[in-house]
């Protein structure tokens, strides 16, 4: 059982030994990231330009835009249309997030039971999520049509029920939003539930805990980080909602469903008031940024708590 032949003397057959100076070692990750940094600059430049527009009176009708300081900001912030738009955007985002989270968690819990039906249905769960939101909007738009749409027919609502009346438009848009994005919450939470350890649940079952107690005391704290990830994605995306709402309502009727992005679109692309549109977006960006910072902080805390490193 002993080695009968030595591997032989090491004869270097590669290029000769050379020393690499430490600065070249340190530079390696930067060199690898350099293309990405170029790309970032390519994206940040227009972003910066957009911020610059906030301080100009730039519009297609103004041939020589000049700096006007904070006039756009004060103008937009004192404009009822903006506040109406901002209020709608936040309300929409909150409602969409809450509805989709509740439904998504519920569906995940039901699917986790792994009944035969559940396992079949799980495979098609994500289909609505993978369709372009704008196409979802188009399909639902066809179905919502009072005269020719299938919904009023199937639901027996007659041919005069208007899904996009002033009072219903938001809820109709939310219905489509929930149709598209509830699966997003569901698949994330389902993955979270499936990654949980089995032992605490078995122990609590032995203790005779009811299903609800088990869910509230055990499962909910453990899947909370997953729910939060889903909430963060959904809330941030809902704040800048555009595609399906735009094809369904174009912000109407009136400005009942005019989200901030639709408002910016109308200002910049329809009426060519670039600076006003940029101001809308700048303010939305501020909202998104602050929300993101807050939510990521909450998520970090929840993850540490679920991992047991924080009481």
């Amino acid at each position: 059982m002993t080695l009968t032949a030595t591997p032989g003397k090491l004869e270097r057959t590669g290029p000769p030994v050379r020393a690499v100076p430490p600065w070249r070692r340190k530079l390696r990750p930067y060199v690898l990231s350099l293309p990405a940094v170029f790309l970032i600059v390519g994206i940040l430049y227009p972003f910066g330009l957009g911020v610059y527009y906030v301080f100009l009176n730039y519009a297609a009708q103004v041939p020589r835009p000049v700096l006007i300081g904070l006039a756009n900001l004060t103008g937009v912030l004192s404009d009822a249309a903006f506040w109406n738009s901002a209020g709608f955007t936040v309300l929409y985002a909150v409602l969409a997030t809450v509805i989709e989270t509740v439904l998504g968690v519920g569906i995940a819990l039901l699917l986790n039971r792994s009944s035969l039906i559940g396992r079949v249905l799980e495979r098609v769960l994500i289909l609505p999520l993978m369709i372009a939101p704008v196409i979802a909007g188009v399909i639902w738009g066809l179905m919502f049509n009072p005269q020719f749409g299938v919904l009023n027919y199937v639901l027996g609502l007659g041919s005069t029920f208007d899904w996009f009346s002033e009072s219903r438009a938001m809820w109709s848009a939310l219905l489509v939003d929930a149709w598209i994005f509830t699966p997003f919450v569901a698949v994330l939470v389902l993955a979270g539930i499936r990654s949980l350890p089995r032992e605490p649940f078995e122990a609590s079952e032995v203790d005779g805990a009811s299903w609800f107690t088990m869910f509230r005391r055990l499962m909910l704290p453990m899947i909370w980080p997953y729910i939060l990830v889903a909430v963060i994605f959904r809330f941030m995306d809902s704040l800048k909602v555009f595609d399906h709402v735009f094809v369904l309502t174009a912000g109407g009727p009136g400005d009942a469903t005019r989200t901030l992005q639709i408002g910016a679109y109308q200002n910049s692309i329809i009426t060519f008031k670039y600076s006003i549109g940029s101001t809308y977006m700048f303010l939305l960006w501020v909202i998104v940024f602050l929300t993101a910072r807050y939510l990521v902080g909450v998520l970090g805390k929840a993850q540490r708590r679920a991992a047991g490193t924080e009481a």
Partner: peptide, 24 residues
Amino acid sequence: IDDVGGEVGIGGRSMTGVEPYERG
């Protein structure tokens, strides 16, 4: 390991800055 001080010598030859695949 990148953040190393002092010196490693193999066969009387300083290995400072020498890549792992050339150290034998």
